[in-house]
Nucleic acid binder design. Structure first.
Lengths: 313, 313
DNA sequence: CACACAATGAAAGATATTTTCGCTGCGGCC
DNA sequence: GGCCGCAGCGAAAATATCTTTCATTGTGTG
């Protein structure tokens, strides 16, 4: 990081591909990045997410006035959202507005309430998770993803770190990778994770899964792996969190709104699993020659565990 | 602003609403107005109609150069097309581009191929999982769900059985239930599962999670629990499978198509997790008095595990 | 309580857009 | 045939808009 421009956000770790500005994944991006924004910027981001069409009609000055901030802040927000400047954000906004116009109409925007009938709960949860999937897919940096896939496909061994709900995602990834013949291990015990991370070296891959991006128990092993020369990947909802410091490749999951009855673990998990699936399929593609028979074999091996299905009584 | 501009097309006499700029019918407008255009303007109009996305990325000067004309001509063309100036034409162009973009989305109905670019993989997987969610939500029997929730909310203890990918779902459910103060345990070891199932009695709940509905390692403990008087629930993709024989309540998950590169575990897991989330929220609603503080407490307890987020280097 | 530092907006500086204005070439009339 | 008038066009001035710089303000910390 040598570029000492005064106010230059943008650049993630890699720095090669700056970031192809999001076409439609804007609402998601706002939600993802909102926590790392200052108050003023949040106001701007909110206005933009609330009324893309309206904001697209405004100039920097107009939007600054509307949000009670300054032009500088508006531009800063545009930068944070991944655009070179306000002009480009505005263009994207126009695009988004057009899509919304033509596309979907209603949305179950309400939060889940204590007295919601069970049918509503199902509908709302399903809608939310669908939204999370769409947002995550839209916001996923395919360059980073491809890089991570390449690293995985050629890895000598792979360690995956995750605790709590993310631990299950880590295990899911591990299960899948094992199925196609990769050497993978999921660690949820932070001590053992660090102990094992020390063994990693160049050519190995370490993956940290944490929604908050700040979970020490996950960041620590990744740091160790990073410092031992392993290729490190972070799957996180906070692309500016500490975990990304030690990540060669950052895969961002979308953050859906959450609430009392809808803990973060729920939608973050959905996004993480999508990313994990993408990694898996990507690797399976790359190593198809080896993966296909391995998949078939593991399927066969399980067959005898299932009794033949038969009609109920 | 006493506008007595020289070159003012557009506005009729009265000038209330001069012309609502065209949203998407741009190509048509170009064709309609082409005859009344001068040669240079036609070139501009053609460029715009040919490649909206490309032109949206250009400044007046850029588009003027591209078409071998001048800025003035570009602006004149924009006016003729019904926009106040080039800026607005550009915005409309961006919108049009976005619409076209999203319009040709449904190419993702195909199966995932070995040589699919990574971006397609992401799109297809996301689409598939969204589909699974929608199907599962639509097919879920809310009566059965409500019954299962009631049983869970009043249970003395709850055992959850699942192996393989479903094992992770079982753990997910367990984690959640524990958070709101319920006594829950996930079993992936079939022997221990059966051993524990023997302990169950009326008022306890046993939940089996198996996509195929035939996994012996999961059916067996459920059978034992069933025979010992526990309330049993099956979360399965096969409502006619053996597991339902011993289930008081059956919750059906949708089965998406699967293929070589897309094992069943992937989409079945998504549906299962939705069901599990519904169960959790349902129980949390029923036991809100106790669940709310418990949720808050578990959140607090985890807080110290996260380092404060800070800006990157 | 002072210090450091992040956050913010005012205004200067750079670009992009719009307007003005004059040149060019074509057709009709004397 | 030559002159007049006008539509078409683009260069450059004028304006609007966006971007950057920099000083100020507020906020948390030792």
């Amino acid at each position: 990081m040598t570029n000492d421009l005064k106010e230059t956000f943008a650049g993630g770790a890699g720095g090669t591909a700056p970031a192809p500005p999001a076409p439609a994944a804007l609402a998601a991006k706002v939600r993802t990045l909102a926590p790392s924004m200052t108050r003023s910027m949040q106001r701007v981001a909110e206005a933009v997410a609330d009324d893309p069409a309206g904001c697209a009609a405004l100039t920097v000055t107009g939007l600054a006035e509307l949000t009670g901030t300054s032009e500088a802040t508006v531009v800063r927000t545009a930068r944070l959202l991944g655009y070179p400047g306000y002009r480009d954000l505005r263009l994207a906004l126009a695009g988004l507005a057009a899509q919304q116009q033509s596309g979907r109409a209603p949305a179950i925007t309400t939060d889940i309430a204590v007295d919601d009938p069970i049918a509503d709960v199902v509908a709302k949860l399903a809608y939310d998770e669908q939204q999370t999937l769409a947002d995550t897919a839209a916001g996923l940096d395919t360059v980073q993803l491809a890089a991570a896939v390449t690293a995985l496909a050629g890895a000598r061994r792979t360690d995956v770190y995750g605790v709590g709900a993310s631990g299950l995602v880590a295990q899911d990834l591990t299960q899948k990778l094992l199925r196609i013949g990769l050497l993978a291990h999921a660690h949820s015990d932070p001590h053992l994770a660090v102990t094992n991370a020390v063994q990693l070296r160049s050519g190995d891959v370490a993956i940290a899964i944490t929604h908050s991006g700040t979970t020490g128990d996950v960041v620590e092993p990744l740091r160790v792996a990073f410092e031992h020369g392993a290729t490190t990947v972070a799957v996180t909802g906070r692309p500016d969190g500490p975990v990304t410091q030690y990540a060669d490749h950052v895969l961002t999951t979308s953050t859906a709104r959450e609430s009392e009855l809808r803990p973060a673990a729920m939608s973050s998990r959905t996004g993480q699993l999508l990313v994990v699936d993408c990694l898996f399929v990507g690797v399976a593609q790359r190593t198809y020659e080896a993966a296909a028979p391995a998949l078939a074999a593991s399927y066969e091996a399980l067959a005898h565990r299932h009794r033949a299905p038969r009609k109920g009584p």
